[in-house]
Design a protein around this nucleic acid. Structure first.
Length: 644
RNA sequence: GCCGGAGUAGCUCAGCUGGUAGAGCAGCUGAUUUGUAAUCAGCUGGUCGGGGGUUCGAGUCCCUUCUCCGGCUCCA
């Protein structure tokens, strides 16, 4: 007999060799049907493997993250089996589950895999699923495993096996397909009822550009057809929130091939929205003790030689600009910090001046790889809500906390709740590549984490993600399609003060080197607006909406009265659209609804007679009649609520 | 940059196996004077992303190039 401990801490005895699925059956048949896999002593395993010693057991269903993982991982095996049926020469590499679905990276050799093969693969997968073949996990010695893949000249699996320990290697067989696998499968292929292969992409072996590019096939699967249908509908819905689509529909921005790719053109409504956000940030920063500066869009090449950026990024940047003067070279600025360092140096600094906080909406230009460009989230010219804080090492923590507060204030004002904070620290091993003293690093790393936890941030600590010049804290947000983007960032920098030989005079009358903190709460205006647009599906909060109120006369007869209402609103700085077209009211309402205008004021005979307006709110309908003054305070209150 | 997909009117899209472009919306003009998500009619609008080729003939087939989309890699 062995003792099994369940998640509720209860312990029961079972005979040795019982499988998790049998245990599930002993509890209830309903449960047994739902069990996909199991966590044994916290490790994801197949539910069909015999238990031979005391352990803790958690039965996993679709509702568990790891349950889904086993399901999708099994689906990857199934896809590989289907692919193998069509491409016997294909070499399989890795096929993991991901957040939504799974993929498999395959080396098709000389053959190329294209998207039009997908339906055939899907069909084959369904056929294989219906065979309900069990996933059988069995051990292999390292020698046998290597021999198996040598015979099939699969250098990828060989490389994987070489890094594994003999005795811990297992293979998995389902139907005709055998794969190196540590496990975590559903009991049999029949569990998979609905499959959709989503796209084909190139992916480098082990994520390294120098390695061979493999074909990655992404898919998703479900235990019920209905769930797949719902998922696909959800994907369609998400696409409607795409900022690129909304940006066009709402007239926020555009791109022109002639201007150049990755160079957004802000249309009046988008520019207005952007300016409003800038003003909001400027005011918040003023209160937080920042001073605004302005620097040019270019800087001499030597500036970037000093900063070290030329060496590190020069060849992948926009190339230097020449002048009529020979040997005179300027760079489009890829960041604002070198300019700000020179501002720091413009006069002698005392410890009493610190922290010195220099802010600028600085437009920078980076030559991003063409395949990377993406709407407003990845562009080649963008404006950072940048600032550099020059402070003493002893002030880093306090400044960090203040920046976090600023970011949280901004996020709250925009109703941004779904974000995570990522703390990026040095890698635990390779410490050579980092600049700055261990002492400073240790302190900054500790203080960043303290600052984050003091402000109750939901943080994820990642080792090895720190920049070479300092640790950082990034705010990550997901877009409509679940892709993660970095917005706000706070970074400690020991490098630039060194390179620019920044100094201040301390209380001891000695020269000291300040620490620099780079920070940008929005990150970039472009990316922030992109994510904001998706976040609110184009329904911007009233304080940001390019048009806040549309005045819609029932007919031309009431244009004069409507015009008075419009004037009153405009005099009170409410952004107002006057729709005086000779269209029917239904059409005017529809057009304003489509443009996501927060409030519509309908005025006709009754309203004119009573000197009132009929208010309709976007998305929710008629709010009834009121005076224009009351309407304005309604709007004003809503704005105040968001901003205070 | 690499792998895969796609470019037809301002927007959304149709155009079968090659026979010299079509709809709805938008725009313009006119009529209509309207009560909470599309009034009617007429008109304008496209070297079918660019270039080259095959063909009697190319939106349709081939090559090349640009741009966009999905990923990979990178991101000071």
């Amino acid at each position: 007999m062995i003792q099994i401990q369940f998640p509720d801490q209860s312990v029961r005895s079972f005979s040795k060799g019982i499988t998790p699925i049998d245990i599930a059956k002993s509890i209830s048949h309903g449960l047994a049907k739902k069990v996909l896999a199991a966590e044994i002593d916290g490790v994801l395993r197949d539910a069909t493997i015999p238990l031979t010693q005391d352990c803790s057991l958690r039965l996993l269903t679709w509702d568990d993250e790891n349950g889904k993982a086993s399901f999708w991982h099994s689906s990857a095996h199934l896809m590989a089996e289907a692919i193998q049926a069509f491409y016997p020469q294909a070499k399989f590499t890795i096929g993991p589950p991901i957040e939504n679905g799974f993929y498999y990276d395959v080396d098709f050799g000389d053959e190329s895999f294209t998207a039009d093969q997908i339906p055939a693969i899907e069909k084959k997968m369904m056929a294989l699923a219906q065979q309900d073949n069990p996933f059988e996990l069995y051990p292999m010695s390292k020698e046998e495993a290597l021999a198996y893949y040598k015979e099939r000249s699969n250098e990828y699996k060989i490389e994987l096996i070489e890094n594994l320990t003999d005795g811990e290697i297992t293979f998995c067989r389902q139907g005709e397909f055998v794969d190196l696998c540590r496990g975590g499968h559903v009991p049999s292929t029949g569990y998979i009822k609905a499959i959709k292969l989503l796209n084909v992409a190139g992916a480098y072996w082990r994520g390294d550009e120098k390695n061979k590019q493999l074909t990655r096939i992404y898919g998703i699967s479900f235990p019920q057809q209905k769930m797949l249908d719902e998922y696909l509908v959800m994907l369609e819905e998400a696409k409607k929130r795409d900022h690129r689509k909304l940006g066009q529909e709402l007239g926020l921005f555009t791109f022109s091939q002639r201007v150049g790719k990755g160079l957004p053109l802000w249309l009046p409504k988008g520019a207005d929205l952007r300016e409003r956000l800038e003003r909001f940030m400027r005011d918040a920063q003023k209160k937080a003790g920042y001073q605004q500066v302005v620097t040019p869009h270019i800087g001499s090449k030597s500036l970037y030689e000093t900063s070290g950026h030329w060496d590190k990024y020069g060849k992948d940047s926009f190339q230097p600009i020449h002048t009529p003067e020979e040997d005179e070279l300027f760079m489009l600025k890829p960041m604002n910090c070198p300019h700000h360092c020179e501002i720091f140096k413009a006069e002698p600094r005392s410890y009493k001046d610190l922290p010195l906080r220099l802010a600028e909406f600085g437009t920078v230009y980076r030559y991003e790889q063409s395949g990377e460009l993406h709407g407003l989230t990845r562009v080649r010219g963008f404006t950072q809500d940048d600032a550099h804080i020059f402070c003493m090492a002893s002030q880093v923590k306090e400044e960090f906390v203040k920046v976090i507060d600023l970011v949280l204030h901004v996020f709250k004002s925009l109703d941004f709740t779904d974000f995570t904070a990522q703390v990026s620290l040095r890698s635990k091993e390779d410490r050579e590549k980092y600049i700055g003293s261990d002492e400073n690093w240790d302190r900054a790393e500790r203080e960043i984490q303290e600052a984050a936890s003091e402000r109750g941030l939901n943080t994820k600590v990642v080792y090895g993600e720190a920049a070479f010049y300092g640790p950082k804290l990034d705010f990550m947000v997901k877009d409509a399609l679940g892709r993660s983007w970095q917005l706000g960032t706070i970074q400690v920098d020991y490098n630039l003060p060194e390179r620019f030989e920044l100094e201040y005079t301390g209380a001891d009358n000695q020269k000291h080197r300040p620490v620099m903190i780079h920070r940008a709460p929005f990150g970039s205006m472009e990316r922030f607006i992109a994510v904001l647009t998706e976040h609110c599906a184009g329904n911007f909060p009233v304080w940001l909406a390019p048009i806040q109120v549309a005045v819609l006369p029932i007919s031309d007869k009431f244009n004069d009265y409507a015009k008075k209402v419009v004037e009153l609103l405009k005099n009170n700085e409410i952004r107002t659209l006057f729709d005086d077209r000779s269209e029917k009211i239904g059409k005017k309402i529809r057009d304003s609804e489509v443009m996501k205008v927060p409030y519509m004021l309908i005025v006709g005979e009754k309203e004119e007679a009573q000197n009132q307006v009929a208010v309709r709110k976007h998305g929710s309908g008629d709010l009834g009649v009121m005076s224009t003054e009351n309407m304005m305070s309604l709007v004003q209150n809503q704005i105040d609520e968001m901003l205070n």
